[in-house]
Amino acid sequence: MTDQAAAPRPHLVDKERTGVIDWSSGPRRFITLYLPLSIFVIVLLFPFYWMAITAIKPNGELLDYKNNNPFWVKSPTLENINKLLFQTDYPQWLLTTMTVATVATALSLFASVLAAYAIQRLKFKGSNYVGLAIYLAYLVPPSILFIPLATLIFQFGLYDSQLALILTYPTFLIPFCTWLLIGYFKSIPYELEECAMIDGATRLQTLWKITLPLALPGLISAGIFAFTLSWNEFIYALAFIQSAEKKTVPVAVLTQLVEGDVYHWGSLMAGALLGSIPVAILYSFFVDYYVASMTGAVKE
């Protein structure tokens, strides 16, 4: 079929057809499109396959490539996951991460909604500059803040507590969420709010009953994104938390599951895999929101 399609067509016509609208068919499309695309997908996803397959391998297979095909597992075992869940503090770490991420997200969303509303709807002198300042705050990376923040956290007596993370995560969540919501509020016609206010609603009622329901997709985008960012956060959690049982999953897997020089790769991979699953599930439900928030093109 591919030969029939490619062969009878004169060269000139074929060349004219090779636009974005219609790629040339057959073998050429395979070489230029499907082959590189499959390589990309395989390379991008292989580490996760490798993680999963390592997590369910028994130790005998794991360290013996001569007699076993390393790409497959003959007798899968739940030993590693079992060990992780019942012989370490892993459930505790999951719970901590979940709590911190949820509370930090809620706090950031609350602050961002109000800030975005003030900047975009309650136009005031200098509101653009406040918006710009918040945008600039997004460009300040945690890597240059964690040392002074550590001294600050220590002074406040928050060292080694969940509150330290809950209060510091909004520094990178608020700028992002506010920026996203400003863009979203802009897409909602102001007339709707005016109508409500003419009918006697106060501004906060308008925000609560008119603007927020309309901005729900934007809120979801900002929320799941903020949750993912807090779940993945590493450097603050590493610097501000000391006790093993209070650590978050990313930090704990790296610091608590590695004992000396003997790496228990099976349980390490199981830990990494389980720690990725919550965000992966969230992601699978809200793919489009992720893409929307990432590209900033939240307008439908």
């Binding site: 991008l44 580490p47 996760f48």
Partner: peptide, 12 residues
């Protein structure tokens, strides 16, 4: 394709 970016960096 987005999965590597979603998963916590430390874990990958």
């Amino acid at each position: 394709i987005l999965v590597p970016w979603i998963v916590p960096t430390v874990l990958s």
